[in-house]
Amino acid sequence: MHDRPVILVCEDEPALLDDICAELDEAGYVPAPVRNGNAALEALTTLTPDLILCDIAMPGLDGRALLKHIRQNRNDLSHVPFLFLTAFAERSDIITGKRSGADDYLVKPVDYEMMLATLAAHLRQVERVTGYRIEATKKALAERDSGRFSALETLSQALVLIDADMGVIHANAAALQLAETEDPILLAETMALARNNGRLRHAVESLFDSDRDTIGAVKVAMPDSIQNFILLIGRVADECCGRPAAMVLIVDPENRHMPEPGLLQKALGLTPKEAEFAALLAKGLRRDEIAEIMGVSQTTIAYHLKNLFAKTATNRQSDLVVLLCSLASLSPCK
Rank of each mutant, 00 (worst) to 15 (best):
R286T: 09
G198T: 07
D319K: 15
K306E: 11
M294E: 14
L106C: 00
L232C: 09
E127I: 02
A117C: 04
A39H: 15
D50P: 11
D319N: 10
L85S: 11
G269D: 08
L24I: 07
D209R: 10
F82K: 06
I162T: 04
C241Q: 01
Q317R: 06
C240K: 03
T300M: 13
A310S: 04
P253W: 01
L186P: 10
D93A: 01
L53R: 01
R4M: 04
R91Q: 14
T214A: 06
T271Y: 14
H79K: 06
L281W: 13
R212N: 12
A102M: 00
A151G: 12
A310V: 12
R74W: 14
A179C: 06
L285W: 14
N255S: 03
A87K: 00
I293E: 14
F88D: 03
M1E: 03
L280F: 07
A151E: 10
A27S: 11
M166F: 02
G269N: 08
L320K: 15
S156W: 02
Q125M: 07
V6Y: 01
A245I: 08
D319L: 06
I230R: 11
G60K: 07
Q177R: 08
K219Y: 12
A174P: 11
L44H: 14
V204N: 03
A87H: 01
I70Y: 01
E180H: 06
I215R: 11
V236M: 00
A15R: 14
A102R: 01
V9Y: 01
V107Y: 00
L176E: 14
G60D: 13
V80M: 01
D93K: 00
L281T: 08
R243S: 04
F84W: 00
L281N: 11
T214C: 14
V322K: 09
V126I: 01
N315C: 05
P59Q: 06
T300K: 10
Q72K: 03
M166D: 10
A188T: 09
L186G: 04
L141T: 11
H79D: 09
C21P: 14
I215M: 12
A313H: 13
F208W: 04
L141R: 11
N315G: 06
S146V: 06
V107P: 15
R144N: 06
E189P: 15
D103M: 02
D165L: 09
Q125S: 12
L249N: 15
Q157A: 07
N36Y: 05
